[in-house]
């Protein structure tokens, strides 16, 4: 059984994001980049399923400029068997990503796709659901537990207010939530080993994918800054402010 895991290169989640003054988006020059945290969880889950003998091969895929190879090498160092880079300089929308992934899956058979539920840059939370729709596969989003048995996946999903449990036939698309697992760190020997693992490169042309723009980001601005508040001297002063001035309790 083969598993495809998508990984996105994003600004490191512990870096303070700055936006360009011209409103064109986040500053990424000389900024520390990392694998999207939800995708790290997705890779970890793929590797664990392999360690359990359920999956035979974990393939990591990234879409973007050639520098995304770094993210793929990290996935390989964590334990993915091979990597695919779809190289493009295009600004990609979630629907584009879903179409590209579908084209790859149409070429090479996979039984399972695991993706992060969202990327922490654009926060769209769409790709997995869109890919499942395009493939006409079942979807299990926001997974906090995955059990695979007899070509079926039982998935516990983190929903507002509780855990929703569904069972779906494979092939399926599963997206990961935070509670699914705790990703491992790459060891130095595995980082060295990753350098010789296979990494295939495709282009949109070689995949036969044509895309059109559906949306345009007109500007990216910083939200209004909160006015700094006051330090109160006593609990009594706090309670009376919250009651009388703010009316929130």
């Amino acid at each position: 059984m083969k598993c495809l895991v998508s990984v996105k290169r994003v600004i490191d989640p512990y870096v303070n994001v700055r936006f360009k003054a011209d409103g064109s988006g986040a500053e990424t020059q000389n900024v520390k980049m990392a694998m999207n945290p939800f995708d790290e969880i997705a890779i970890e889950e793929g590797i664990r399923l392999k360690e359990q003998g359920i999956i035979s091969e974990v393939v990591a895929i990234s879409i973007g400029e050639s520098v995304c190879q770094e993210t793929l090498r990290h996935a390989l160092a964590l334990g993915a068997d091979k990597a695919i880079l779809v190289e493009t300089g295009n600004k990609l929308e979630p629907l584009h990503v879903a179409k590209i992934l579908k084209a790859v899956i149409d070429k090479e058979t996979f039984d399972l796709v695991i993706m992060g539920k969202q990327a922490i840059d654009d926060d769209n939370n769409q790709c997995g659901q869109m890919l499942a729709a395009l493939l006409d596969w079942p979807q299990a989003t926001f997974a906090s537990k995955i059990e695979i048995n007899a070509n079926k996946a039982q998935v516990s999903r983190e929903v507002d207010g509780g855990i929703d449990i569904i069972e779906c036939d494979l092939p399926a698309v599963i997206t990961t939530d935070l509670r699914l697992n705790e990703p491992r760190y790459a060891t130095l020997p595995n980082i060295m080993k990753a350098k010789s693992k296979p990494l295939d490169t495709f282009t949109l042309d070689s995949l036969g994918v044509t895309l059109r723009d559906h949306v345009k980001v007109l500007s990216v601005d910083e939200p209004p800054v909160r006015e700094s508040g006051i330090i109160v001297e006593s609990v009594a002063e706090l309670v009376s402010s919250l009651k009388d001035k703010e009316g929130v309790i």
Partner: peptide, 23 residues
């Protein structure tokens, strides 16, 4: 844009060949 809507609408959008606008 709850877990209910986030689970459902992107799937609808892809069926319609539309780029959904989230949140």
């Amino acid at each position: 844009a709850s877990t209910f809507g986030k689970n459902l609408l992107p799937r609808v959008a892809a069926l319609l060949d539309v780029q959904a606008i989230s949140d």
